[in-house]
């Protein structure tokens, strides 16, 4: 049974999360503040952490940083801060996902599943499948609806990066750093151009993409349709 630590100072939020998660087969721990949260992570070693940004003692971002000093366990941020700046800051600091309050339970469960999966690294030899898309990572073959698609090296590099983190948001910075290099982290228009090209090749309707989703102001996410 996967174990989740909920870090939130609001008792109502903790309660409805506990009810929702327990009915879906999670074992739940609760923590009302940052210091207690760090302690509980060390003691209970949960599989996942759901972390609020506004805590009475520490800033959520600070808790995240302290956790990231010694553990890679998946952390999902749950916050009322809706601005893209906050999202990017949290993701860049090592959060696995970011959900804005209010949110639906279904959405949270989906994100939890994605985060859990990423706890295990993806093998290079695997074949990735999502909807009409199929990518053979070892042979570098991309097919859409069983038709082979020819990608440029840049397009393929982008797609491979998204596949490695499928289901998870990658910030503009993270993508640019991984694919182009650290000196290109501000050239967001590269992304606009290449994702438009990539979508033309792999999406059924490039104007309404279903595989590669834009997270406004934050980054991109490859939808995992199993």
């Amino acid at each position: 049974m996967p174990e989740v630590l909920i870090v939130d100072d609001e008792i109502q939020i903790r309660r409805f999360l506990r009810i929702g998660l327990e009915t879906n087969g999670y074992k739940v721990y609760e923590s009302p503040n940052g210091h207690d949260a760090i302690l509980k992570v060390a003691q209970r070693k949960p599989d996942l952490v759901i972390l609020d940004m506004e805590l009475p003692d520490l800033d959520g971002l600070e808790v995240l940083r302290r956790l990231r000093e010694w553990t890679r366990l998946p952390v999902i941020i749950l916050s009322v801060r809706a601005s893209d700046v906050d999202k990017v800051a949290a993701l860049d600091a090592g959060a696995d996902d970011y959900l804005t309050k209010p949110f639906s339970m279904d959405e949270l469960l989906a994100r939890l599943r994605v985060a859990q999966r990423h706890a295990q690294p993806l093998a290079e030899t695997q074949i990735f499948k999502s909807g009409p898309l199929q990518v053979d990572l070892s042979r570098r073959i991309v097919t859409v609806n069983d038709q082979t698609v020819k990608l440029t090296p840049t397009e393929y590099a982008l797609l491979r990066l998204l596949i490695q983190h499928h289901g998870k948001v990658l910030t503009h910075k993270q993508i640019l750093r991984e694919v182009w290099g650290p000196e290109y982290v501000n050239e967001t228009h590269y992304l606009r151009v290449y994702f438009a090209q990539l979508r033309q090749k792999i999406e059924d309707d490039p104007a309404l993409p279903r595989l590669i989703v834009t997270e406004a102001g934050v980054g991109y996410r490859l939808i995992d349709e199993g």
């Binding site: 994702f195 438009a196 104007a207 993409p209 834009t214």
Partner: peptide, 17 residues
């Protein structure tokens, strides 16, 4: 304003989504 180069098509897609 946080201006950056944007693709209007992509923007409309996100809004519809």
């Amino acid at each position: 304003l946080k201006r950056e180069w944007c693709d209007i098509g992509e923007l409309i897609g996100v809004a519809i989504q």
